[in-house]
Each structure stands twice: as C-alpha cells, then as structure tokens.
C-alpha cells in the first residue's frame, strides 16, 4: 500500500513539473509573438520623413485686409484670413448662447493679432474643404465659410452656426515667428 501511494505522489509531482515547463515554453512563444506584432503594427504610423514635414512656415505679408489664402500643412488645407474690422465686430457681437461650440474670437486668435484667423480648411462634419477662402466664393449665411457637401455654415470667426458640422473649424497650433511669418505645427 505504502509503495503505491508513494509512486502515485511521484507521478503527480512529475506531471506538475512537466506542465510548468510546457506552460513556460508556450507563454514565451506568446510573449515573442506579441513582441513581433508591435513593430508590424507600428510600421503603419507616420514615418520619420512624414513627421519631419509637420511644421510649415507661411509668409502672410501679401494678404490684404479682408483677403484669405489657402495653403497646406501636413497635406491638409489651411485657411489664413486677414479679418476686416467689421468682421471682427460681427464675431464679437454674437452671444455665446447662440454657438454650438462656444468660443470667442480672442480664444481662436493670438493676442494682439486678432485680425489673423488661422484654421484648418477641413469641415468638422465629414472632412470636405469649405468654400470662402478664395475671392468670390460662397461664404454662407454668416459671412465666414460654407461647406458645399452637406451645407455647414461658419461665421466670421469660423465657428459653426448652421448645418450638420458638430464643432468649429479647428485652429492648428501655430506661432508668429515675426510680424509677417507664421509657423504652423
């Protein structure tokens, strides 16, 4: 009897050690597989040359009052608008309660440079390029930008006022490197 219990205990012990090594080997394979998947996924992120293009310098000296230009940053359109006094006054007169995404013009421009409105030209609805940057284009019911795809109207501060777009046109990160040069990104 005694020897029988001994041997069965021995087997049990052996089974456990065997299981441990097998489990360890399989877990290592799993860890290795995950470690290999990481670079295979990461390769789809923007590559170094794409990231290097993430800042763009724009010369704004040629943009007269009331004019706008369309330029590009990270392969996306950017609107740079030199607002007129009337447009600034109109933007400032809108009550916050009328806005879908309440923001003042001052919050969307740099201090002392309130006439320079710089936004991405990407409608926040589904990504079309709104009209209004070029001379003679439809600027919508509120005198800013108008997206022809699904009829979103933006006001003179490029805030959404009417139509399906959920938020204002995005203001990208930028700085005035001098009075006439803006660095976006």
């Amino acid at each position: 009897m005694a020897s029988e219990t001994e041997s069965s205990a021995g087997i049990e012990d052996g089974v456990r050690r065997r299981d441990f090594i097998n489990i360890a080997a399989v877990s290592f394979a799993g860890v290795g597989a995950v470690a290999v998947v990481l670079p295979l996924v990461n390769q789809m992120n923007p590559s170094a040359d794409v990231l290097a293009l993430s800042s763009t310098e724009i010369d704004i000296s040629a943009i007269g009052e009331g004019q706008a230009i369309k330029t590009s940053w990270r392969k996306q359109p950017v609107f740079v608008r030199n607002l007129t006094a009337a447009e600034i006054a109109e933007a400032n007169s809108v009550p916050m309660s009328d806005l879908r995404e309440p923001q003042t013009l001052a919050e969307r421009t740099k201090p002392g440079k309130e006439n320079w409105l710089i936004t991405l030209g990407v409608c926040t609805h589904l990504g079309c390029v709104p009209l209004g940057a070029a001379e003679g284009e439809n600027r919508g019911d509120f005198g800013g930008y108008f997206c022809p795809c699904h009829g979103s109207h933006y006001d003179t501060a490029a805030r959404i006022r009417k139509g399906p777009a959920p938020t204002n046109l995005v203001v990208p990160p930028y700085e005035f490197t001098s009075d006439t040069v803006v660095t976006i990104g």
Partner: peptide, 24 residues
C-alpha cells in the same frame, strides 16, 4: 505598404523603408 513598384522610385522607396519607416 511602403514599396513603390516604379523604376523611377523603387530603389529610393526601399531606402525609405530602411531609413524612415518605423522598424522598416
């Protein structure tokens, strides 16, 4: 996903993979 099969750019696209693509 990164290679370009065009005689004008194929060589450089491989070097692009070697230099710029993450883990390329």
């Amino acid at each position: 996903m990164h290679y370009a099969a065009n005689a004008g750019v194929a060589f450089n696209s491989v070097e692009h993979i070697m230099r710029d693509v993450n883990a390329g």
